[in-house]
Amino acid sequence: MANQLIVDLPELEIFGRRLAAVRQGLLDAPKRVDQSVADVGSGELRSALEYFEDNWKDGRHRMDQTLDALVQMAERIVTGLQDTDQKLRDAIDKSKQKSV
């Protein structure tokens, strides 16, 4: 039992989708800031929002790259383990057919 790998694939799939949603929210942030800037009446507040947006681009880009890598890893793990499970099932089925 100690040498077994146990992965909750449905939960990992959900985690990957949640990461993808977080990434999309991060990518959509500039649009929300632009909408907020348009709604703000104060020039000083508008300048502060624009300043924040301009200075946050580098950090957002790095976070986007990291989230994208994590989403891809989760997807590859799920696909790889599902493929491995199917190959094992097929091998077991084939072995059973030979023994009958």
Score class of each variant (00 low, 15 high):
residue 27 L to K: 11
residue 37 V to M: 15
residue 99 S to Y: 08
residue 36 S to T: 11
residue 94 K to M: 13
residue 22 V to T: 02
residue 40 V to C: 04
residue 53 E to F: 00
residue 49 L to N: 03
residue 90 D to S: 10
residue 74 A to H: 02
residue 37 V to A: 14
residue 51 Y to H: 14
residue 97 Q to M: 13
residue 74 A to P: 02
residue 55 N to D: 11
residue 48 A to Y: 15
residue 61 H to K: 15
residue 17 R to Q: 14
residue 27 L to T: 05
residue 86 Q to N: 13
residue 81 L to Q: 06
residue 3 N to V: 13
residue 32 R to S: 03
residue 22 V to L: 01
residue 3 N to Y: 14
residue 34 D to F: 03
residue 18 R to V: 02
residue 89 R to M: 08
residue 31 K to G: 09
residue 99 S to E: 12
residue 65 Q to E: 05
residue 58 D to K: 14
residue 89 R to Y: 10
residue 32 R to V: 07
residue 75 E to V: 06
residue 10 P to N: 07
residue 13 E to M: 03
residue 45 L to W: 10
residue 100 V to S: 06
residue 65 Q to P: 01
residue 76 R to C: 04
residue 16 G to D: 01
residue 58 D to R: 13
residue 94 K to P: 04
residue 88 L to Y: 06
residue 6 I to M: 08
residue 14 I to A: 12
residue 76 R to D: 05
residue 10 P to Q: 07
residue 70 L to Q: 10
residue 29 A to V: 09
residue 47 S to A: 10
residue 13 E to N: 10
residue 26 L to K: 01
residue 63 M to L: 13
residue 36 S to A: 14
residue 90 D to R: 07
residue 72 Q to F: 06
residue 42 S to F: 05
residue 6 I to A: 14
residue 60 R to K: 05
residue 98 K to P: 09
residue 51 Y to W: 15
residue 52 F to L: 11
residue 34 D to H: 08
residue 33 V to N: 01
residue 48 A to R: 15
residue 46 R to W: 07
residue 88 L to Q: 12
residue 75 E to K: 11
residue 38 A to Q: 12
residue 15 F to M: 09
residue 92 I to N: 13
residue 35 Q to I: 06
residue 60 R to G: 00
residue 74 A to L: 07
residue 43 G to V: 02
residue 81 L to C: 10
residue 59 G to T: 11
residue 72 Q to G: 08
residue 66 T to H: 05
residue 72 Q to N: 15
residue 71 V to L: 05
residue 36 S to N: 09
residue 76 R to G: 04
residue 74 A to Y: 03
residue 60 R to A: 00
residue 83 D to Q: 09
residue 33 V to D: 00
residue 61 H to V: 07
residue 41 G to S: 04
residue 56 W to D: 01
residue 95 S to C: 07
residue 49 L to S: 02
residue 51 Y to G: 14
residue 46 R to D: 08
residue 16 G to M: 00
residue 48 A to I: 15
residue 2 A to S: 13
residue 52 F to Q: 08
residue 57 K to A: 06
residue 8 D to C: 12
residue 41 G to D: 04
residue 25 G to R: 04
residue 85 D to P: 02
residue 62 R to V: 05
residue 48 A to D: 15
residue 38 A to L: 09
residue 86 Q to Y: 00
residue 36 S to V: 02
residue 70 L to F: 10
residue 26 L to Y: 03
residue 72 Q to A: 13
residue 64 D to S: 04
residue 81 L to K: 04
residue 28 D to Y: 09
residue 83 D to A: 06
residue 6 I to S: 11
residue 39 D to C: 12
residue 17 R to K: 11
residue 37 V to N: 00
residue 63 M to D: 05
residue 78 V to E: 00
residue 100 V to E: 04
residue 91 A to V: 11
residue 78 V to G: 00
residue 97 Q to A: 15
residue 67 L to I: 03
residue 37 V to R: 08
residue 85 D to T: 08
residue 90 D to P: 07
residue 35 Q to E: 15
residue 21 A to V: 02
residue 58 D to P: 05
residue 93 D to N: 09
residue 70 L to D: 04
residue 74 A to R: 06
residue 94 K to W: 11
residue 51 Y to M: 13
residue 95 S to N: 05
residue 31 K to Q: 11
